[in-house]
Write a protein that binds this DNA or RNA. Sequence first.
DNA 1: AATGAATGAGGCTTCATTCAT
DNA 2: CATGAATGAAGCCTCATTCAT
Lengths: 214, 214, 214, 214
Amino acid sequence: MNIQTFPTKGERTRAHIIASAASLFWRKSFNGVSVDDIAAEAQVNKATIYRYFADKADLALAVIRHQGVLSMEHVFEASMAANTGPERRLAAIYAKAYHVHAQTKSETGDLLGCPVIGLALELSFEMPHIREEAHRIFSQVEAYLVEIAEQASAQGRYAGSPDELGATLMQLMHGAFASARIASDPTRILDAGHASLALLGYPETRIIQQEQMA
Amino acid sequence: MNIQTFPTKGERTRAHIIASAASLFWRKSFNGVSVDDIAAEAQVNKATIYRYFADKADLALAVIRHQGVLSMEHVFEASMAANTGPERRLAAIYAKAYHVHAQTKSETGDLLGCPVIGLALELSFEMPHIREEAHRIFSQVEAYLVEIAEQASAQGRYAGSPDELGATLMQLMHGAFASARIASDPTRILDAGHASLALLGYPETRIIQQEQMA
Amino acid sequence: MNIQTFPTKGERTRAHIIASAASLFWRKSFNGVSVDDIAAEAQVNKATIYRYFADKADLALAVIRHQGVLSMEHVFEASMAANTGPERRLAAIYAKAYHVHAQTKSETGDLLGCPVIGLALELSFEMPHIREEAHRIFSQVEAYLVEIAEQASAQGRYAGSPDELGATLMQLMHGAFASARIASDPTRILDAGHASLALLGYPETRIIQQEQMA
Amino acid sequence: MNIQTFPTKGERTRAHIIASAASLFWRKSFNGVSVDDIAAEAQVNKATIYRYFADKADLALAVIRHQGVLSMEHVFEASMAANTGPERRLAAIYAKAYHVHAQTKSETGDLLGCPVIGLALELSFEMPHIREEAHRIFSQVEAYLVEIAEQASAQGRYAGSPDELGATLMQLMHGAFASARIASDPTRILDAGHASLALLGYPETRIIQQEQMA
DNA sequence: AATGAATGAGGCTTCATTCAT
DNA sequence: CATGAATGAAGCCTCATTCAT
């Protein structure tokens, strides 16, 4: 998804609209952003948006998929690929999450939280299919966490069921973003990460180096 | 809070509006509900609402406080008062949460989630003081969870820091509601509860009896 | 009208409401002031206002009469009584007007203009009887100006018809307030006054002493 | 300004909205007219108005500029261009003003008064920039009156300062509209005009022929 | 493929006014 | 005589969406 060389101009326009909307929805929520705002951010005429998306809800669906893909690639797949041990993999995931949130908070003043669950919770009642899409995305996330749990289990660090541990790690991750947003404090993400590492059997693993925390 | 006999008529009207708005915001979100909707639900003229609340945001603040008080009293204080052991206390909290969500889901078709964090996340960017109010409420909740952790610690069930465990229990509770809403499945709450009990040192404690699970 | 010892409490309340409304209407215009504002300024319940006045328009009528009486007494009758020569009488009238507007401007930041014509123009289309009341008031004012013109005529300062001169002086006085408000500059009132004195045959008469103008 | 062929459709729509609003504001005042009324008069959707104007106040500003331009062109520039002598120029200005007000009064039943100062006075406290715009417009008007005074001065009709006379003529003109509105009588405009001509040194000049006075 | 222009519906808020005590 | 409480109507504005070019 990174170096996306879209063949046709239309596909490029479409991708550009999605990226603009994603950024706005993340920073300001779905209802806090108008289609006019999106058109302005994308530097595209409003009617053009409606050429590519049936309505604002349809755009939200595309955005949630986009954010899902982005998270999977940049955070989960990248962390899995770059590390081998389960604790380093999990620590890498949390490190990425922490850095993104620390940086966006210093840029925007707000702690933005998980871009997928933010949209999904806001729209879950009015647009159930968006909630379902988020459900699907988090199933993939949970699969990675289960894989990590299985690794730890194989290394004798953890005795219980990897599926259950994976589920708990998933919930702790949700809790990480929730409490971070409520406290507007990115270090909550680190707390959840360290608790997760402890659950995995690596209580002493640190997510980021001390000197990075400035 | 239940049998509140408010002295003046105005206070009764105000409380009634808050209750009506709380119900609607919980079921449909802040932006999904218009002031007209609230007036209709409360069977009150729209202008009456503005006699008691400066604007819709001010009403949301009152609602979040109301939900906070309600949760503290009905769920946390009640569970603490009715039980003595840490594991029964925590189990009672989760049992209440589970039952409420199972019931509202069967009534409305939606899994509603925590009424405090729902509003708070939706409005956190546009109305920071609402996020701060939620923060305050969850600090109180966390204090109860820390108290439970301390009890478990005193009973030798748990060796680490009760503060840290309390924080983790708080995050797991956030995760419980988040994953329950995304999955639209109340049993996620039970999963989080059991994981919490395990963390507390009571892995075998069940939140509800098998036959209750209908 | 000054030392009004109203017999009954009701009449005092009524007079107090009128005075409060007069002040607000003058400073902020009729439409810029709500009945709530008036109640707050008068420190009286809103319903009390409706005990004394049929509606807001009725209150406006009472206010315009009040302002008319006040202007007649404080400005015109006082200036006529305190002076004998036509030029000193006219100068005294303009001096009063100037001082009031210079002071209120320094207090409120706005040049308020004639309180009678302000209301009357704002409401002339919707409430013709208010315009008629203002018409009546300005007829009285014009009568004073005609009297002054007659004096000047008797002293051989002015040759034309005193009625016509009085009418012109009246128009110049309206122009004084209009241009002062548009320019937000009280010295326009002095300009009109000096032009009026010149018309009257006293081009050298000054309205206020140089040292007062600070 | 009459045969304005605006290039784009948007500019035509904008001009049409301004003209509609100008007419309504003149006939009924700013606060007596709702945005719905304007939309109906212009036969345009309400939202279209907000495409061209930030809010109702912004529309009022555009209207006041429009009325200023219209008055300058149709009344002042036209009268200056069509006549050479100062007395004929001033008489032409007052003749135009008189005819417009006599006609609109017979059409609407109300004497409407100067469309610039009407709006400006109504909004001067709440929207100071509108008052300033009116100030600017009347400075232009006064410049024409000063020019006329200079002419009369050159012809030996008037001995004093043309600037001062111009200022007095401006105030008399304001007074003309004010007293005409209060009396609901267009002939007050003629009175002010004749007084102005006398000041200019042409006491015998008539503004309109006797037979035109219907 | 894209845009400027237009719209209908609805949202939030305020106001003058009335009722019951 | 006075007030706290309530209301219907209306006002301003915004939004998602569509049309015509």
